[in-house]
């Protein structure tokens, strides 16, 4: 099965600068982690901060564009992995190893299997 691992953290811990030591450190950890996944890693990316986010909202068929992320929350979606795993326990075992700077959460979601 394919799973998305969605990484939620308080982006403030990484500061605003792209070369902040905290950001560089976590990127290093993610590169090592991604390498350790081998064939289980199907894809993924880190996301730029929510100050760069723009949201297209549809309400009653009317589409409007808004500045900011979908939800203003204490923790934000900061990146994701797409992985292949035989079952949920294997996916959870990988999710436990996802690097986090401090507090945070990794949401594990199976991908919809679309018949080809």
């Amino acid at each position: 099965m394919h799973y998305a691992l969605l990484i939620y953290e308080d982006e403030a811990v990484y500061g605003d600068e792209p070369d902040s030591p905290a950001l560089q450190a976590i990127i290093g950890q993610h590169m090592a982690f991604a390498g350790s996944l081998g064939a289980a890693r199907v894809g993924g990316a880190g996301l730029a901060g929510t100050t760069s986010a723009t949201t297209v909202r549809t309400t009653g068929g009317v589409k409007t564009v808004h500045d900011g992320p979908y939800a203003e929350t204490k923790e934000q979606l900061g990146g994701f992995y797409l992985i292949e795993a035989p079952d949920l326990d294997s996916a959870l075992a990988i999710a436990r190893r996802v690097p986090l700077a401090a507090n945070g959460a990794v949401e594990v979601r199976p991908l919809l299997e679309v018949p080809t």
Binding site: M1, Y3, P86, D87, L88, D89, V108, P110
Partner: peptide, 14 residues
């Protein structure tokens, strides 16, 4: 069914 919960007795750690 959707999340792919395995039909196994988990290891002692779980």
């Amino acid at each position: 069914a959707q999340a792919g919960v395995p039909f196994e007795i988990p290891g002692p750690a779980a």
